[in-house]
Design a protein around this nucleic acid. Structure first.
Lengths: 224, 224
DNA sequence: TACATTACTAACCCATTGGTCATTAACTGT
DNA sequence: ACAGTTAATGACCAATGGGTTAGTAATGTA
């Protein structure tokens, strides 16, 4: 509606010095996500982000005050902002807990695992030592909401009599661990896998099965 | 036998320019392991390693031709060199598979998980993108031998009729995943955990239980 | 066409760091 | 004691990369 020249496609001769204030932030975020997840935080140069977004380094700093704020904007854009929706989705879920856990793993794969966003958890863990502020931000903005979501799943299972009582902190971690592992596997190109053609979703379903056994999950809403 | 001045303890006034050719490599490796696992590969400065080992940067390059070779020497020193022993240990193991898996997790924790060495897998995964040579080296030297070891455990279980037949690649990864997760947890100060006082060994035993169920492990050497 | 506004750029600054090398001083044998 | 050997040093180099800013050009308005 307000972009005078049609957004310069990647093939266009690229008119130097076009003014497109509205489009810049989104394009910078896209480029930043791409480079951050493929090279890590400190190895990603802001100048490279700017170049990939089709602007100069100076322009990037015009829209984001620092590299760190750029990164945080990326995280908010792709992860934090989506928890509200997922919370609602859980509210209206109808089936039993075993099915729910399988469903969780499945949608995690569809919405995170198989997308670029899946590089973010790995990135933050990788650089947590050297950028404590980023780690703290991510923990607050992503880890804790995520933990709370899984906790609700388990509590729901216990209330429905499908899950044996268990320490929630350990239960949450049992559910979460395979997801983090898969994120790392994907982000490292299957580095620790024995076989290059490894079917991650299949692996996750195996994990879900093992987990349901390990947590003593009753197939139906039966009592102890 | 050959160190003329008593190895300058950390409290000694530290005689400048002492000549201790024998002790240097070990001290440099110790310092390097310490810094590498606590700061990551690229964030660790060789000068810092040298300082912590009580020598100058120039001296470090006298013993190791580059930062990368220093790192590889660390990996060989703490990990690669130990697989032979572990292989032998498995040869002579007597009990059933469920007990063996629990035992594996337990000794992994004692020998790796609770030591500095546990930072290495996390480090390599963290920087695999930017240092492909290091990743390839580590994969060859540690990942593949580790996978083979776990594979032998599973094969043994199947031969004894305690494990249902399964795809070995997935089985190996099911066993390995919790270890890698725990290594990352430790290396990031419990970054993704809901609770700061999380008992990792206990978590591993819960994982072992769930896993044995998931793999359909028979408690005794019974048939299908 | 002339002017004001501002999105954008490119050159610059400066701290950091892997690696080198000429120099120095600690040992050795005689 | 003295020369020869070599372990150890620290000053130095070149490349890198986050962030700044003076200036340029695209746009709107009249």
């Amino acid at each position: 509606m307000s972009t005078p020249p049609p957004p310069p496609a990647l093939a266009t001769p690229a008119p130097r010095r076009s003014r497109r204030k509205e489009a810049r932030p989104g394009e910078l975020l896209d480029a930043a996500l791409d480079l951050f997840v493929s090279k890590g935080y400190s190895a990603t140069k802001v100048e490279e982000v700017a170049r990939q977004a089709g602007v100069s380094k100076g322009t990037l700093f015009l829209y984001f005050p620092s590299k760190q704020e750029l990164f945080q904007a990326v995280v908010r854009h792709v992860l934090s902002s989506r928890f509200a929706e997922w919370d609602l989705e859980l509210d209206s879920y109808q089936h039993d807990t075993a099915t729910l856990i399988h469903y969780c793993y499945e949608v995690w794969w569809q919405r995170i695992g198989s997308t670029k966003a899946c590089g973010l958890p790995h990135l933050v863990m990788a650089e947590a030592h050297n950028f404590p502020e980023i780690a703290a931000f991510y923990r607050q903005e992503v880890v804790l909401p995520g933990n709370r979501l899984i906790e609700r799943v388990l509590r729901r299972g216990m209330e429905r009599g499908e899950l044996a009582p268990l320490d929630l902190d350990y239960g949450v971690t049992l559910v979460l661990a395979p997801l983090i592992f898969c994120a790392s596997v994907k982000s490292t190109g299957g580095f620790c896998l024995p076989n290059p053609d490894f079917d991650v979703p299949r692996f996750l379903q195996m994990q879900a099965d093992a987990l349901m056994h390990g947590l003593g999950c009753q197939p139906r809403g039966g009592a102890t």
